[in-house]
Computed example of a mutant assay.
Amino acid sequence: MLNSLPKSRKRYLKPSVFWSIRQGFPRWLGLLISLTALVIPLLLWAVLSYGGWVTPIFLPTPTAVLQSGIQMFTQENLLLDVFASSYRVFLGFLVAAAVGVPIGIAMGTFYSMESLFSPIVGTVRYMPVAAFVPLIVLWLGLDEPTRVTIIFLGIVFFNAIMVADAVKFIPNELLSVAYTLGANRFDVLVRVIVPAIVPSIIDTLRVNVAGAWNYLVISELIASENGLGFRVIQSQRYLQTDKVLFTIAIIGLIGLLTDFTFKLLFNLVTPWAERTSA
Rank of each mutant, 00 (worst) to 15 (best):
L2C: 06
P6Y: 13
K7H: 13
K7M: 11
S8R: 15
R9M: 13
R9Y: 13
K10N: 10
R11C: 04
S16D: 13
F18A: 11
W19H: 13
W19A: 12
S20L: 05
I21F: 12
R22N: 14
Q23I: 00
G24Q: 05
F25M: 14
F25K: 08
P26A: 06
R27M: 09
W28E: 12
W28Y: 12
L31F: 10
L31W: 14
L32P: 04
S34P: 01
A37H: 02
L38E: 04
L38S: 09
V39D: 08
I40S: 08
L42N: 00
L43K: 04
L44Y: 12
L44D: 11
V47G: 10
L48S: 03
L48W: 00
S49R: 02
G51P: 08
G51Q: 12
G52C: 09
W53C: 05
W53T: 01
V54D: 06
P56W: 08
T63P: 00
T63L: 14
V65P: 01
L66N: 00
L66Y: 11
Q67E: 15
G69I: 03
I70F: 14
Q71R: 13
F73L: 15
F73C: 07
S86F: 15
Y87A: 15
V89Y: 00
F90S: 09
G92W: 00
A96H: 04
A97Y: 03
V99I: 15
V101W: 06
V101Y: 03
P102C: 04
P102Q: 02
I103P: 00
I103D: 01
G104T: 00
G104Y: 01
G108F: 04
S118L: 15
S118M: 15
P119G: 06
I120C: 11
V121D: 03
V121E: 07
G122R: 08
R125I: 05
Y126P: 01
V129M: 02
V129C: 02
P134C: 07
L135R: 05
V137S: 05
V137G: 11
V137T: 14
G141T: 14
G141L: 08
P145S: 03
I155P: 06
I155N: 09
V156A: 02
V156I: 10
A160L: 05
I161N: 01
A164Y: 03
V167I: 11
E173M: 06
L174N: 07
L175F: 02
Y179G: 02
F186W: 15
V194D: 06
A196N: 10
I197H: 03
I197K: 04
I197P: 06
S200Y: 07
S200E: 05
I202S: 07
I202T: 11
I202F: 04
D203G: 15
L205A: 11
L205W: 08
N208H: 15
N208K: 06
A212V: 12
W213D: 04
Y215K: 01
S219G: 11
E220T: 06
E220V: 03
I222L: 05
I222C: 01
N226L: 08
G227C: 07
R231M: 04
V232L: 13
V232E: 00
I233G: 02
I233E: 11
S235I: 03
Q236I: 06
Q236V: 06
Y238R: 11
L239V: 14
Q240D: 14
A249T: 14
I251A: 00
G252C: 08
T258I: 15
D259F: 09
F260E: 09
K263L: 14
L265V: 15
T270Q: 02
A273R: 07
E274I: 10
R275A: 08
R275Y: 10
R275T: 11
T276M: 11
S277V: 10
